[in-house]
């Protein structure tokens, strides 16, 4: 597995994702600069990391969607390529239309950083194939705009199509229906507010995030 970690001006979890993939998972990784207009052929997973892309001016992720790399990510995803967006990456995915809904300010109006418990809602994704349905994962959040919101019919559709990947056990930000992470209809694009790359090293207090990367490894190996 080779992960391409996108670097926007203002990305600040890019090195963390790179480190988790290479040191904790034992796979390969490369950085992809935001001005690049193509995803290199040897990359089989694109990671949109956390941070404050372009300063999150206007709205979180609103400027990133116009970057050359996002055009390339859209093509990559359309061709079935695997894309993961964590935190700001999730915000960019909703802004650029790769995932439905939007992430707005936490209902408590404050930035919140702490570990949360997530429940795995589906294992029918390449990101959770090695997890168990109902499994609780302890993974940190760190965001001010993580309240997931969408039209009721969109939420109904996400539920009907088994596309809600993670729910908060205790909702920290007011997200609709406790949603912490969702995937697209093709099930190859995942967006989630929590940071699995921060729960990949025993020294960080939890390795519950590893199941996502290991699931990807096994799915890619089977290809």
């Amino acid at each position: 597995m080779k992960a391409g970690v996108v670097v926007f001006p203002g990305s600040n979890c890019d090195h963390d994702a790179y480190y988790a993939v290479t040191q904790n998972v034992g796979a390969q990784a490369a950085f992809l600069w935001h001005q690049q207009a193509a995803i290199p052929g040897d990359v089989d997973v694109v990671i949109l990391p956390g941070g404050f892309s372009y300063g999150d001016y206007l709205r979180c992720g609103a400027i990133a969607k116009f970057s050359p790399i996002i055009g390339a990510v859209k093509q990559f995803a359309a061709a079935g390529g695997i894309v993961m967006g964590f935190c700001n990456g999730f915000q960019i995915l909703t802004e650029s239309g790769l995932l439905p809904g939007a992430l707005i300010r936490n209902t408590g109006l404050k930035f919140r950083c702490h570990p949360v418990d997530l429940r795995v809602e589906t294992t029918h994704t390449p990101f959770t194939s090695l997890a168990e349905k109902g499994q609780i994962l302890n993974i940190p959040i760190a965001h001010g705009e993580g309240c997931y919101t969408a039209e009721p019919h969109v939420l109904d559709q996400l539920e009907a199509e088994d596309r809600i990947v993670f729910r908060y056990v205790q909702n920290p930000n007011g997200s609709a229906r406790d949603i912490a992470g969702i995937c697209n209809a093709g099930r190859n694009v995942l967006g989630m507010m929590p940071h699995p790359e921060r729960a990949a090293d025993p020294l960080m207090g939890s390795t519950d995030g590893l199941v996502l990367f290991r699931s990807l490894l096994s799915v890619l190996a089977a290809k």
Binding site: C13, D16, K110, F111, R112, C113, E197, A200, M204
Partner: peptide, 14 residues
């Protein structure tokens, strides 16, 4: 106070 700070970014916080 401290939950408003991202105290984990860079994954070095032991």
């Amino acid at each position: 106070i401290y939950e408003q700070y991202d105290y984990m970014v860079r994954t070095n916080t032991l």
